[in-house]
């Protein structure tokens, strides 16, 4: 079949006149910055402190630091695979990085460079189906993060108080919760998989949950970025405080 007006064989060919490249470049750059930062921080390069007073960096929450691990080992390695896997298989992030990094396609109606395309039907992208598994893990992390946020109001030896770090950790726990609640896979589990919402009281309740998840899901992109930034900022803030670069403003006297 002859294609209309020699459909784009060449990468990036399009008749679009707007700045279609801006969003994938900007989002890709932002994501790349986070990946580099979180790798450096997660492997604890330079052995900076990640605990300051009542604050623990969310990269390390919950802190698992057994004695048998080697000197260079970062306790974040026990943690980070989960949020990493959750985000890597997230339907929103897939849209973003397939566009920004795989150029498949970089923008709508812009031709892509790949000669062959099998999408998510073959390895490695078939692994995206593990998103459900990562969701279950991510759901376990929500109480853990709130625990870390609650803990940040309790200064050992001094008691209840509040600091800028506590506020940041609460905001972070909230944003990560909203990102998780808006998950497409969760939307399916709570109600999307049903064909009859009206059948029983339980399915009616699940419809209401589905409606709530849908509200969060409609802004999944916004929650994804907000929580990505917040988790990075939380880690950075706590490390800066822990290493004395800045001082946390708080109600405690010994910190």
């Amino acid at each position: 079949m002859a294609q209309a007006t020699e459909v784009q064989q060449r990468y990036g060919k399009t008749q679009r006149t707007d700045r279609w490249w801006l969003e994938p470049v900007a989002l890709g750059a932002g994501f790349l910055i986070f990946v580099i930062y979180s790798t450096v921080s997660g492997f604890n390069v330079g052995n900076w402190h990640y605990e300051a007073g009542p604050y623990l960096s969310p990269f390390f929450e919950p802190l698992i630091n057994p004695s048998w691990t080697p000197e260079w080992f970062s306790p974040a390695i026990f943690i980070l695979w989960a949020p990493l896997g959750f985000r890597a298989t997230c339907y929103y992030y897939r849209r973003m990085y397939y566009r920004s990094f795989f150029m498949s396609p970089m923008a709508c109606a812009v031709s892509e460079p790949a000669k062959y395309y099998t999408g998510e039907s073959k390895f490695p992208f078939i692994l995206m189906n593990s998103h459900r598994f990562f969701l279950y893990v991510a759901l376990l992390f929500i109480p853990v993060l709130w625990y870390g946020a609650a803990k940040s109001f309790w200064m050992p030896g001094e008691g209840l108080g509040i600091g800028v770090g506590s506020i940041i950790l609460v905001a972070n726990a909230f944003l990560l919760m909203m990102f998780t609640i808006g998950c497409n896979s969760l939307r399916h589990i709570v109600g999307g998989g049903l064909n009859c919402f009206s059948c029983t009281n339980f399915t009616r309740t699940r419809r209401k949950m589905w409606d709530l998840v849908t509200v969060a899901n409609e802004r999944h992109k916004a929650w994804a970025w907000a929580s990505l930034v917040s988790v990075g900022v939380s880690d950075l803030y706590i490390r800066l405080v822990a290493n004395g670069a800045i001082t946390d403003i708080n109600t405690w006297t010994t910190f």
């Binding site: 339907y91 189906n129 459900r132 497409n184 399916h188």
Partner: peptide, 18 residues
């Protein structure tokens, strides 16, 4: 969000949900 992903999720139910 309302058609393709739910269909993918319905298949996950059958094959990939631990």
């Amino acid at each position: 969000d309302n058609a393709i992903i739910p269909l993918k999720e319905r298949r996950v139910d059958e094959y990939y949900d631990p």
